[in-house]
Design a protein around this nucleic acid. Structure first.
Lengths: 257, 257
DNA sequence: TTTTATTGTCTATTTTAGAGACAATAAATT
DNA sequence: AATTTATTGTCTCTAAAATAGACAATAAAA
């Protein structure tokens, strides 16, 4: 089996994904560790098939790493500096070359292709971290969640990719009402607020946050949640997909940030 | 001379530019007409050199068509449907092939490359239309400004590219204070308002528009402009680049739209 | 029964946006 | 020279929205 057939994929073009998850009050990012043979960290990425749309390619790459379909996904920027050559991968491949060539996993022309400069399309994804069982890519030794504020140093411009993705996420979070993709099916108002505080890295006033969030008319109030704590039980909420009726009256979404 | 050497450029990746100008109360876009031999309309575009950053490639393409350097330029979206094959160009090339091959302007492998599916990075640019002297590309028969509301039908998804660029422009216009790139060095308040009205395709209240615009503290008031009209002479303004002092106190930019 | 921690919601205050009004002025008209 | 016309610059008033402050309602612990 050929790892990277140069005719099968578009050359010198890749996709890299910043996969955001939320757990224990922290915004996290999924990062792969690759050993070839030196250990380096990278964002999950891949290539675009000749007959495949870039959005579907991104979806495919995400499914490969998370097992999830129907992920919230957004293209946010292209990274195209001519210095974008994956030296670590090339060096690693040089070491594996002999073995892989003998197993027909790679041929010389594939190797040539991969050692060139790459333009990469950046996507970011929002997932319910509880639903993800991270899967290793072919070359990965591990795949783990890292706090976005404590990421390892990754190859090339991958750290910069995360910074840009986070900036875009902050601009879009409540404008596009996409935050709920990071939460489980049901949640309390406090949990929504804590998510916002993790993303924007700043506190919000509880009374006004709740007022604004409810005024969006996108949350369905469910039963109370008895937590066993010595306080009033909070309501559970569910994100209500936009209905026909609410579509008719154009909805003005205000900034919480 | 080779038109499109496949080793010189990144294959299957292109850049297309939506160049916005403003004149006579209308937002306009620069569109090329190509005859090969059927007449088709396209956005100015080009390819990325092997050792060139994508932003510099876009700048180069823009300079080729407008003669301007230092253009306001922003990457806004990648278009990557697998159906993005330039049938008109391929058909036209088929007709010119014999002639171009004989003149060594093209070789067989270059042609193969160009007939494949392309992923295109969309950039939009804002220019002072008075400073531009549109230049034809190698294959163009004409390059003209079209009202953004009355564009000709262009190849592939180029009309959709303009729609997406306009949407991004509307989101960014006053948030990033980029509108002044469409105006000459000095202008009246009315001219700024008319520009905004052309971009958003809706009227603004004169009194409050002026108040907000001045409260941004980015306009420098110059002398009065005597127009010869039977009214009070309006002030001229100039866009004041952000100073060190105004950088220190973080500036909150409000929406005018 | 009282205390504690949090929740849900209300009101008051401050800030901002939008609507209306009007004097100032440059040129045309009388 | 006085009046009229068309616009400009700016003011105030009102409506709406954001922010801050307050407090009763729980659920469990003391």
């Amino acid at each position: 089996m050929k790892l990277f057939n140069e005719e099968y994929f578009i050359r010198q073009l890749s996709i890299d994904c910043v996969i955001f998850g939320y757990q224990e009050l922290e915004l996290k990012v999924l990062v792969s560790r690759v050993a070839l043979p030196n250990s380096v960290w990278t964002l999950p990425g891949g290539f675009i098939r000749q007959e495949e749309s870039i959005d579907l390619a991104a979806q495919r790459i995400l499914e490969e790493r998370t097992g999830l379909t129907d992920i919230y996904l957004e293209q946010y920027r292209v990274f195209g500096e001519p210095s974008r050559i994956n030296h670590e991968i090339v060096e690693g491949f040089n070491n594996m070359k002999k073995e892989w060539l003998s197993k027909s996993m790679l041929d010389e022309s594939s190797f040539q292709w991969l050692s060139k400069r790459f333009v990469s399309i950046g996507y970011y994804a929002l997932v319910d971290i509880n639903k993800v069982s991270p899967r290793k890519g072919m070359l990965d030794t591990s795949v783990d969640w890292y706090n976005v504020k404590e990421l390892p140093t990754m190859i090339m411009d991958h750290n910069e990719m995360v910074d840009a993705a986070l900036e875009t996420l902050r601009q879009n979070l409540d404008q596009k009402l996409i935050g709920f993709n990071l939460l489980p099916e049901t949640f309390t108002m406090r949990e929504v607020q804590e998510l916002y505080e993790a993303v924007y890295d700043k506190p919000f006033a509880r009374n006004n946050f709740q007022k604004k969030m409810l005024d969006l008319n996108v949350l369905e109030r469910l039963e109370k949640k008895f937590t066993g704590a010595q306080n009033k039980a909070p309501y559970l909420y569910r994100f209500q997909k936009v209905t026909q009726q609410s579509m008719e009256e154009p909805q003005v979404i205000e900034n919480l940030s």
